[in-house]
């Protein structure tokens, strides 16, 4: 395994246990030809179990959705074997086309062409609502 041996790359840490594969597909990591490691159910001091994703190349990623999934996720940028930067992904103002509105009375339920758009309405509590019907986005589902 490449764990601990990344020279230049990214470590996405503190992913809620069991969610790494979801992020893997959302971030399209399957399309990369660099090394990618997924660690499931790693023991985490304060929060029980967690998942970790390690990417062995300094690529550009769109971190927007990470904050939506869990604001505790951390992104570590590794340069020359050392941690160069660590941050929590910020909450995007809008999430377009990634979260589906589940309200059967929403216009998106009958017009397939409409993009599903969620807007951040409460940053403090990281609440997103459907732009059309104002239904709250369910956390933990993309």
């Amino acid at each position: 395994m490449i764990i601990g041996s990344i020279h230049d790359g990214i470590v996405i840490d503190h992913i809620p246990a069991g969610r790494a594969m979801e992020l893997y597909s959302y971030l399209k990591l399957g399309e990369l030809d660099c090394e990618v490691a997924i660690i499931k159910n790693a023991v985490s001091g304060k929060r029980g179990k967690k998942d970790i994703i390690k990417i062995g190349a300094p690529i550009d990623l769109n971190y927007d959705i990470l904050g939506f999934i869990d604001p505790h996720i951390t992104v570590n940028i590794i340069r020359e074997g050392k941690r160069d930067r660590k941050f929590h992904p910020t909450l995007p103002e809008t999430i377009i086309g990634l979260v589906k509105c589940k309200n059967p009375r929403c216009i998106t339920s009958c017009e397939q062409e409409l993009p599903h758009v969620f807007c951040l309405t409460d940053r403090e509590n990281s609440i997103y609502r459907c732009r059309y019907c104002e239904t709250k986005a369910e956390k933990h589902t993309l």
Binding site: C106, I107, Y132, C133
Partner: peptide
């Protein structure tokens, strides 16, 4: 009858749309 339909209409045109009830 569907929630948000008048907003979809407003986003598509540049004349004012009044929501007369969406679900």
């Amino acid at each position: 009858p569907k929630e948000g339909a008048p907003l979809v209409a407003q986003m598509s045109v540049n004349i004012p749309v009044i929501n007369a009830g969406d679900g």
